[in-house]
Design a binder for these strands. Structure first.
Lengths: 183, 183
DNA sequence: AAGTTTGTTAAAAATATATTTAACGTTCAA
DNA sequence: TTGAACGTTAAATATATTTTTAACAAACTT
């Protein structure tokens, strides 16, 4: 009987491990280190964890857990919680994938839009100088204009990205694409 | 006078380089190798390029260009074109960022949804076995149910991801978020 | 105040990834 | 049918990233 229980316990672990493997694999692709990916996936099935529990569970070094958990906090997939009576820090995983999606991609896209728009603005200023420069030959002016227009066109995309971010942040996107669509 | 021209030419290169740097930097974050990122960003300002031109322009080895261009083709950011009269292969960069966005993220999200859903289905089957098993103790059944429900809940997210992919692929998302919104 | 416990930082080791050099196979041209 | 041009593959090198071990600093306990 207690052996049957052992089997059930093992089956549960097996079930969890399948999902942990899949989650960690996809997170890997998101530029998260293997340690952090495995950690998050493990925490996904836990109420909360301390650094020592992480180390024991994943059989990895404490500094590795420390840096991993910090990276996960940066992308808001893990939060610190206060546990009274314990000196150890405790952490909980964000279990709402919608929120993780929002934080991760919005952060990424916002940065992309900002970085590239800044570069584009500067570049366009340079190009305008060339275009306005009376000593530039016609074909140089033509070339400068061509690039200017190409950059101007690309701004449409970055503005759209910013709109997308805004609609995700505000939750408006779920009016268009409901979360719980009956399949 | 020809010196003035030289200056204008340099200013154009400078302008391009600013944008090339920004594009390459963001692509880096997308899990593309530096060589591929620089290559795409360079091609963004060219009509078309051959492997030898790439090598010359980026001052890198030919195999590096070869593998980079192949990776870029996989994510459909570069396409091969036929140029009559030349034995060399010629490639052009996808200059429509909306299309790049679509291909890259839809590919990624679809894969994520598929991988994780498969794992979830398998895990849920295991958990059901445990729940139905008459020899399982009540607390084990409770635990199995808890995980089952958690996984069931997470499916909502993956379905939503699939819906998002579909609406991007079909272009329906642009009805909700128009490309050219006056700022 | 001395000794633990806890977490982080810094240097070292291990590992993985990216790039190059060298060798190869194919196709075309003479 | 020989040789050159072109592109790819394979092995070697270089580089970057990840993880660990060791040392440290802060906070708490006794």
């Amino acid at each position: 009987m207690s052996e049957q229980n052992e089997q059930s316990r093992m089956k549960i672990e097996e079930a969890k491990d399948k999902v942990i493997g899949a989650i960690a694999e996809t997170m890997d692709l998101y530029g998260v280190t293997p340690a952090a990916a495995n950690l998050y996936a493990t925490m996904y099935f836990k109420e909360q964890m301390t650094l020592d529990e992480m180390r024991t569970e994943l059989e990895m070094s404490k500094p590795s857990m420390s840096t991993s958990v910090r990276k996960l906090q940066e992308i808001e997939m893990v939060k610190k919680t206060f546990t009274r009576g314990s000196r150890k820090h405790t952490y909980i995983a964000e279990k709402n994938f919608f929120r993780s999606f929002m934080v991760f991609y919005c952060q990424m896209w916002e940065r992309e839009a900002k970085t590239n728009m800044e570069a584009i603005e500067e570049a366009q200023e340079d190009l305008i100088e060339v275009i306005k420069d009376s000593s530039s030959t016609p074909d140089i002016v033509t070339e400068a204009k061509k690039y200017y227009d190409q950059l101007e066109e690309s701004k449409v995309y970055y503005h759209w990205l910013e709109d997308l971010v805004a609609s995700i942040r505000s939750g408006k996107i779920f009016e268009f694409l409901p979360k719980d669509q009956q399949k």
